[in-house]
Design a protein around this nucleic acid. Structure first.
Lengths: 333, 333
DNA sequence: CTGAAAGCGCTTACAG
DNA sequence: CTGAAAGCGCTTACAG
């Protein structure tokens, strides 16, 4: 089945390609009512649908953006993507989703491929490496928004959780409940990605704020696959923590698995707060106190910022937008 | 900053555009070593990167596919997308993700837009309406794979869970544990989407197989927002079910919330099995018996099938691939 | 071994 | 009010 083009429509309607193009772009200002009707009929008769690729080539806009996440399997990423997609959809934009898996090489390749495909802009959860690449993008004024993570030394627009506040909310909640021996578990700190770094810092400053000394043994970080070992080490200390803050949902899962396997009573034996409002928080036993991230608002904001840049709003200054976390007070602390 | 094109590279390297193009496409067969080196140098010096849109226009392939899900927030969809993306990435393809929200109008618009953007093929969780649209695609031989759901009367390649088996596994497990009063809860049956319809059918045939009479009161379906009401109605019957099969994760959440709120003991008061192996199944109290779907395998298969179609493998016959569910035996039954 | 020319399917000044 | 022509940035026979 031969693809039918604007030329076919023009022939059929007995007008020129230009006129058909005018019609398609809704510039009817000077178009004869009759011409219009003929074109309309021709399009319907032939079942014509324009080739957007050809248009993109000329107009230098693909109405497509790229979103590079670490891993779409993380609930937070999924929510952010959904919000972005909704926003794009309203403007007839499409979104290409890429998983960089925290691999700088993969990230680089995706960015280059997306640019070669002429996407109008990119929103990324950056690995934090590839600093030169990001710096180049910035200097070029290429529309780009950082999500969840910052790139050291690169002043791009970004939307992040107020990580400091998130941790302070949690620690404050522990303190209010009378806990002083407060531990924290986190993914690998060797990958000093913004949320981990900031939450770690905040953990220390929050403890200090309440006059509690920081104890390295109360801080466990490592690969998810080894997390249960780290947790065991911490909870079998001679003087173990009475409360633990889980830095994100993945790590919380490991902690809950451990407490389940070893019959640790929550909160009697161990109080728990997790960052990320997991789906089962309200019907787990006990219900789980969490710190919720406004993922949808964050995704929407990122999309708005990107569109501003795409529409060429003079990037007067770079901004880092911090979103407020929310304490979901339940039974685990 | 002016975009630099193949013409710039040609001028810089003192060759023709054709030659640069040959180089880019790695057709070096007859290329002088010196020419090659000059082009290489020019590309590096100018920081040239090809415009894939222009290439796509000529080659009629965008190396991009579309994936239309009902809602990316469903874990199953996310896993399927991840598998598809991985597969595509290996062939340098990109994937555009769309959420149709079970809205046939939205689905139609997405399909039309994706085609206008010349994507090489589409994988969709179809709404089940838009039958003519699908039929047209099929007749045109447009690369298209159905995922999770079938379109009535349209013989396209599809990958689905073996829903009948999934339900039989669950009912069998209930029977083995001595339950005979077995209920089921599901999303709205007014939307007779394949998994719901097939699971519902299988529920009836499975009961019959064990000589149990089907009782309409033991079947609750409705909007998620009203699910707790349906559940309450069922569990406050004079003769309530002793076991409930949750048709998917969303509905399981509602059930668990209900049992939590009303202190229903699992499995003492009520045995539960859910289709979809939810993230917290292994550390919930009690741990949850589930039926797992091989989402990653299914996504990968869909991608493979789509690529076969894209590469023009004569579509000798249409196939519906059924994937085996797996019983994850835990404590809730 | 390399280049000139046509063409992919559109859009966009510009002329009339 | 409408059309001829050039051009977007590539690729691809074809000629030499």
């Amino acid at each position: 089945m031969k693809k039918i083009t604007i030329a076919d429509v023009a022939t059929y309607a007995n007008v020129s390609k230009s006129t058909v193009s005018q019609y398609l772009n809704k510039r009817y200002d000077y178009m004869g009512a009759d011409t219009k009707k003929r074109i309309e009929a021709a399009i319907k008769a032939l079942g014509y649908s324009p080739n957007i690729i050809a248009r993109s080539l000329k107009q230098k806009s693909t109405k497509t953006i790229g979103v590079i996440v670490a891993n779409i399997l993380h609930v937070f990423s999924t929510q952010v993507i959904r919000a972005i997609e909704d926003y794009c959809n309203a403007s007839n934009f499409h979104v290409i989703v890429c998983n960089a898996d925290d691999d700088p090489m993969k990230e680089k390749r995706y960015i280059e491929m997306l640019r070669a495909k002429q996407v109008d802009g990119i929103i990324a959860f950056p690995t934090g490496e590839n600093i030169d690449l990001y710096q180049g993008l910035l200097e070029e004024n290429y529309p780009f928004i950082l999500m969840d993570r910052l790139v050291p030394g690169v002043a791009m627009d970004a939307v992040l959780l107020d990580n400091e506040k998130a941790v302070h909310l949690a620690i404050e909640q522990f303190i209010k409940a009378g806990y002083k021996k407060i531990g924290m578990i986190s993914p690998p700190m060797e990958q000093p990605v913004t949320p981990r770094r900031e939450r770690m810092e905040a953990y220390k400053t929050a403890l200090k704020k309440y006059g509690i000394e920081f104890r390295p043994a109360y801080l466990a970080s490592g690969e998810i696959t080894d997390m249960h070992i780290r947790i065991k080490e911490m909870l079998t200390l001679a003087d173990p923590p009475e409360a633990i803050l889980a830095l994100n949902d993945r790590v919380l899962f490991e902690l809950l698995q451990y407490t389940k396997d070893h019959q640790v009573q929550i909160p009697a034996d161990l109080a728990i707060i997790g960052i990320d409002d997991v789906s089962f928080a309200s019907f787990y036993s006990p219900t789980l106190t969490t710190i919720a991230q406004p993922a949808f608002d964050m995704g929407k904001k990122a999309a708005q910022l990107l569109f501003n840049q795409i529409q060429g709003d003079s990037r007067s200054e770079t901004n880092v937008y911090r979103f407020a976390p929310q304490l979901m007070e339940r039974e685990s602390c």
